[in-house]
Design a protein around this nucleic acid. Structure first.
Lengths: 206, 206
DNA sequence: CAAAGAACTCAACAAACGTTGACTTATTGC
DNA sequence: GCAATAAGTCAACGTTTGTTGAGTTCTTTG
């Protein structure tokens, strides 16, 4: 092995999915080390590509960020059925927790979500995006509750509890949380979410 | 304004609290923009000091981080009384929430805490520190519950819920959470914490 | 009052960063 | 089949970064 395969110079024949490779690499690195430490050079290397190509496709690094942060999950699906007549009451919260954990336990979907969370905490723009995401989509799904005047507060309580769960299990990796089975967690947290969704906030029935 | 006061060259007379100024500046910047974007030069400028002095005192930037991350709050005080005979049952969770919010609403104590949270999400070392902090000190305060075999799980649930609350109110700034009065939040979240602390996790009394 | 050391600045280092422009190769439209 | 354009590499740019070593001024110790 003397010549270590110097990359060919021009365009590749056929349909190389290079653009997606770059996005995948970017999401992986954003998720692993956050926005600042994920250098364009590292992303390019991971995608087996020249750094200049990243700019050729996405322009500046910030633009690459917003391109990589496009959610692979429709949040409306996550909360589908919450607050409707059938989905209301017992089990709704548990279902949501189970869906969220399933999403985060799958390696493919975890990367972009972790990337979003990591950057949201340090990047003002991503924070706003995540905030709107929770506020709008969760609220929109709380159909039968939407007329209550405290609906957005209820949504915020639910969202923040789920956020804390994710933070503890996947970012901080608190042992009891990271080690527990999804069903167990859903069984314990779900009822609390139900309470936040439809219970009496002032006079809790505990 | 021709000569813009070039700094004197040697040691200052008297007792200049420069070391603390540097730590304060570091905490402010870590809290504002996170670890990576808080450059040593910016910290030094904010502290009205030469960048080299930062190294003179704290060595590498990572060492400055751990020095700045020393909590200004004894977490044991935060959870004092939780799980004891008097503090148990009604009101314990509400008290904790009120204490936590008071801490985060105070600008002086918020900076180092925000710095800790921001860096914990992107820095492996800070994440471990925050994790241990919650696990150990919260657990240690749950006196009467410590013999239960699920004590650490209960502590993790409480900690993650509080973490989510902080995340939503101070980092993402979700309007309903950021705008609510501390007492209102404590009234709604407190009972849930009580449930996590001493309620029946498997068969929730909702 | 001299010597040791702490506090402090200055100038510069090497490395890494995001970004750019010129160039080469394949594909597409007419 | 010939231009226009997209896909791709290469080498280099100007900054900014963390960090260092030498030098200067004050304080402390004996």
């Amino acid at each position: 092995m003397t010549g270590q395969s110097p990359r060919p110079k021009g365009r590749r024949p056929g349909d190389s999915g290079t653009k997606e490779q770059i996005l995948d690499a970017a999401r992986d690195l954003f998720a692993d080390v956050g926005f600042e430490r994920a250098t364009i050079r590292a992303i390019a290397t991971k995608a087996s590509v020249d750094p200049a190509l990243v700019h050729h496709y996405f322009g500046t690094k910030d633009e690459l960020l917003v391109a990589a942060l496009q959610l692979p999950v429709d949040p409306a699906v996550l909360f589908a059925g919450i607050g409707t007549e059938e989905g209301n009451g017992r089990g709704a919260g548990e279902t949501v927790v189970r869906r969220v954990l399933a999403l985060w336990d799958d390696t493919d979907t975890r990367a972009p979500l972790l990337a979003l969370l990591r950057t949201a905490v340090s990047h003002e723009r991503a924070a706003a995006a995540l905030g709107e995401l929770f506020a709008n989509t969760l609220l929109a799904q709380m159909a039968t509750l939407a007329d209550r005047d405290d609906a957005s507060l209820r949504a915020a309580l639910v969202g923040s509890h789920i956020g804390g769960l994710v933070l503890g299990r996947y970012v901080l990796r608190l042992p009891p949380l990271a080690g527990a089975a999804p069903d167990d967690i859903a069984g314990m947290v779900g009822p609390v979410l139900d309470h936040y969704l439809s219970g009496d906030l002032a006079r809790p029935a505990l």
